[in-house]
């Protein structure tokens, strides 16, 4: 393994241009960075960062032949997290495109409902906005944890509601992402009444319109205080 890595280094160092007139400074990326006196090392995909004996691979990296390589173009960040080895990762300010993953908490908007499921558009993964919309489905039996058979979708969601949900599966060929709201912290966070006013939650299954005082049924989320905006 070390042999391979040595050969790779040889190849890299033999890149020094001889006749090409474009390349004025034929250094490797790391050296070029040092010239600019920036304290942050910038790397390009495929650059070898270090051995797995020195660091643990974080996001934006991959391991090959027991060496850690960068898989993104960005800044190299080394963090000590109290464990034996520091974690090395590659950071871009614009977060690496997140995709909804199993057990991720997502924020979505209900687009349509029927008696069996509600269709949603996933807008956020955690607190990161998605650039493109991903479609998801909340099935009737995944709406709440208790009395699953008595759930009626139209008493839980309405189109336009903003819902916190958790991804339970990426779905198969036919279906989209499958989501669940079967936890106290999950469910509708923002809903508008028929009068068009944002409603206030009054219990875990009801919301009230501040203007008309009409009550509507929703599967309300008990939003954890740390997620509320100050």
């Amino acid at each position: 393994m070390t042999m391979t890595s040595l050969q790779e280094t040889d190849v890299l160092s033999s890149v020094q241009p001889i006749t090409v007139h474009v390349i004025t400074i034929g250094r490797l990326a790391s050296e070029a960075c040092a010239v600019n006196m920036s304290p942050w090392k910038v790397c390009v995909p495929g650059e070898r960062l270090c051995s797995t004996e020195v660091c643990k691979a974080g996001s934006g990296t991959y391991i090959r032949h027991s060496f850690i390589f960068a898989s993104l173009a960005g800044y190299v960040v080394k963090k000590n997290e109290g464990e034996e080895l520091p974690v090395i990762s590659v950071a871009r300010e614009t977060e690496a495109q997140l995709l909804p993953d199993v057990n991720a908490i997502v924020t979505c908007k209900v687009t349509s409902i029927n008696s069996r499921f509600a269709k949603v558009h996933i807008l956020y993964v955690g607190s990161t906005p998605l650039k493109n919309k991903f479609r998801g489905t909340i099935r009737k039996e995944d709406v709440r944890a208790t009395e699953k058979d008595k759930v009626e979708i139209y008493k839980c969601f309405r189109p336009g509601d903003i819902v916190l949900a958790k991804v339970i599966s990426l779905g198969d060929v036919q279906s989209n992402y499958l989501l669940t709201t079967a936890e106290n912290e999950l469910g509708v966070v923002v809903a508008h009444s028929e009068a068009g006013v944002q409603m206030v939650p009054i219990s875990w299954c009801e919301m009230q319109c501040p203007r008309t005082h009409a009550k509507e049924f929703r599967k309300v989320a008990r939003v954890q205080p740390e997620y509320l905006m100050p």
């Binding site: 890149v15 090409v20 490797l28 070029a32 920036s38 942050w40 390009v44 173009a73 960005g74």
Partner: peptide, 23 residues
């Protein structure tokens, strides 16, 4: 290909620095 590698690298480094301030 190896000859154009450093041009590609430098192009990306500039792009990264221009797009994102250091973390």
């Amino acid at each position: 290909c190896q000859r154009i590698y450093s041009v590609a690298q430098r192009c990306l480094l500039t792009a990264v620095k221009k797009k994102n301030p250091p973390p």
